[in-house]
Design a protein around this nucleic acid. Structure first.
Length: 482
RNA sequence: GUCCCUAUCGUCUAGUGGCCUAGGACAUCGGGUUCUCAUCCCGGCAACAUGGGUUCGACUCCCAUUGGGGAUGCCA
């Protein structure tokens, strides 16, 4: 039994679309679950689209996502080079071989103008009949220095059938297939050609890719057959969709929101959560379980769990999953990753960061929400005394005035300014006046924060602010109430 | 236009002819715990697109319709 070899073959576009990331994930999962090899190949045959540093983005993304590759431009391997632009002469050689075998022909036609595919069906084929040129005519044209491309010769009759691991048997009539271009006029191969050549040469056993390639797969198989090569296993994946403002769904793209891994990360989503979420978009472990580490995914992964129908990317669910990862991480880890997002570094608040982090962790869904949650710690908001009104806590401005008048001196007495000692002052008040604890707590918390909703209670906030700042804020409140 | 794929709650999905008065999760709504909020716990709402078959029996199989998506590039 041959070793399973899968590949991820992105174009260096400068960012990693989550759809691509998911394709990489499944290819990785398939390889890892079978003790196979995972190959990274860079498909940079479109010179016009070349972007600087784009390859570094790919490396960085795969690394942060935890998808390690066994072969690739950076780590080497026995099937290199792993960058298509460095394999240019190879494709030329095979294209000519295919012409000799009759599976392709030179085309000297002018480039197609931009055409509306709806109005001109089959715009993709050779507009002339270059396929019929005699060998001598071709020789003459080539000698004249005319510009040329190489096109695949697709039969007009019959049909081609192939089997996909996810979609099953698919048959397509040959007459709807174009004589697609294999080698461009700049000598570079198209994706359609380079893929077949490289997948064969790199001994890829399972081709994992999006289902948008389903209808062109027969053309690839014709190529494999023309060369006499073995056809790999196909694993086509359902597409990830996005919903736009009008409610229409289509292939997930920028107009639907952040769709690149790096954008999502900078918005406060954790790589682990993104991977976990995206794994479940189109694949099911066939159980109710939803939270998986990468390692656990590799153990649970099976091709039979792959879905056929496309899935809408749901930011709400990703957000929930992110919060699950945040809640599950050790507090120290949360402190570490949340600090850069908090804006607290370098401020007086940094000494209390441990305490702040503890309050934040259970109530943070996105790391980017943190600054607004803790802004009141840096600057007391300007608030009105109506905030002291609260029915459930039986508190109002008048009550609050009493509470503060009585507790401020006691709070000022506290030597060890801990949550427990601060809360004890409130508890004493509640007991003495025979009221619920909530009453003094409400008054003190509002005075400390100037907000009705805060992360943490009165004691927590006071301990973070420190004795001096707390007393200052309590006295400001008392002034407001007088 | 043509071809291909697809169709279970708003969303992601389980379900492979009787276990389904269809299960889970997100979202949403309500209740409890809590000094607020959140966490946590409990509960509610909510789906087999339609029409034909096949079968003793269809969410599950077949066909059609309709809806959705994709392909149709010297992009990948």
């Amino acid at each position: 039994m041959a070793c399973v070899r899968t590949r991820f073959a992105p174009s260096p576009t400068g960012f990693m679309h989550v759809g691509n990331l998911r394709t990489a994930l499944y290819a990785w999962l398939l390889a890892r679950s079978q003790n196979g090899r995972f190959v990274l190949r860079i498909e940079d045959t479109d010179r016009a689209r070349y972007v600087d540093n784009a390859v570094e983005v790919i490396y960085a993304t795969l690394q942060r996502a935890g998808l390690d590759h066994d072969e690739g431009p950076d780590v080497g391997g026995d099937f290199g080079p792993y960058v298509q632009s460095e394999r240019k002469t190879l494709y030329g050689k095979y294209a000519k071989e295919l012409v000799a075998k009759g599976g392709a022909y030179y085309c000297f036609c002018e480039k197609h103008e931009e055409t509306d595919a709806e109005e001109t069906p089959h715009a993709g084929g050779c507009p002339g009949n270059c396929g019929e040129l005699s060998a001598a005519e071709v020789e003459a044209k080539l000698a004249s220095g005319a510009s040329w491309v190489i096109r695949q010769r697709v039969p007009r009759d019959g049909a081609t059938t192939f089997t996909d691991s996810v979609y099953g048997e698919i048959t397509i009539e040959n007459k709807v297939l174009d004589d697609q271009i294999l080698l461009k006029s700049d000598g570079m191969p198209t994706y359609n050609f380079a893929n077949v050549i490289d997948d064969h040469l790199m001994e890829i056993t399972h081709v994992v890719r999006g289902s948008e390639y389903l209808s062109s797969t027969p053309k690839y198989n014709m190529l494999y057959r023309a060369f006499g090569w073995e056809i790999p296993q196909y694993v086509h994946l359902p597409l990830i969709m996005g919903r736009d403002a009008e409610g229409n769904v289509s292939k997930l793209s920028k107009r639907h929101g952040s769709v690149s891994f790096e954008n999502l990360v900078s918005e406060g989503y954790l790589p682990e959560a993104i991977i976990n979420y995206v794994a479940l978009l189109g694949w099911s472990p066939k159980s109710d379980r939803e939270l998986f580490t990468l390692k656990e995914l590799a153990e649970a992964f099976q091709v039979t769990g792959l879905n056929k129908s496309s899935a809408v990317f749901d930011y709400d669910k990703l957000r929930w999953m992110n919060s699950e990862y945040i809640k599950a991480m050790p507090p120290e880890k949360f402190s570490e990753i949340a600090l850069p997002f908090s804006g607290v570094a370098g401020t007086p608040l940094e000494v209390a960061w441990g305490k702040i982090g503890a309050l934040l962790q259970p109530r943070t869904e996105l790391l980017t929400e943190i600054p607004e949650k803790i802004a009141f710690l840096c600057a007391l908001p300007d608030y009105g005394i109506e905030l002291f009104d609260n029915k459930k806590s039986k508190c109002n401005a008048e009550v609050a005035k009493e509470v503060l008048t009585e507790t401020i001196p006691q709070i000022a007495e506290i030597q060890d300014f801990t949550i427990e000692n601060i809360n004890a002052v409130a508890a004493t008040y509640a007991e003495k006046h025979a009221v619920k604890l909530g009453q003094p707590m409400w008054a003190i918390r509002i005075a400390l924060a100037g907000l009705t909703v805060t992360p943490g209670g009165a004691g927590d906030i006071a301990a973070i602010l420190g004795k001096e700042e707390s007393l200052k804020r309590l006295n400001i409140a008392l002034q407001k109430l007088n």
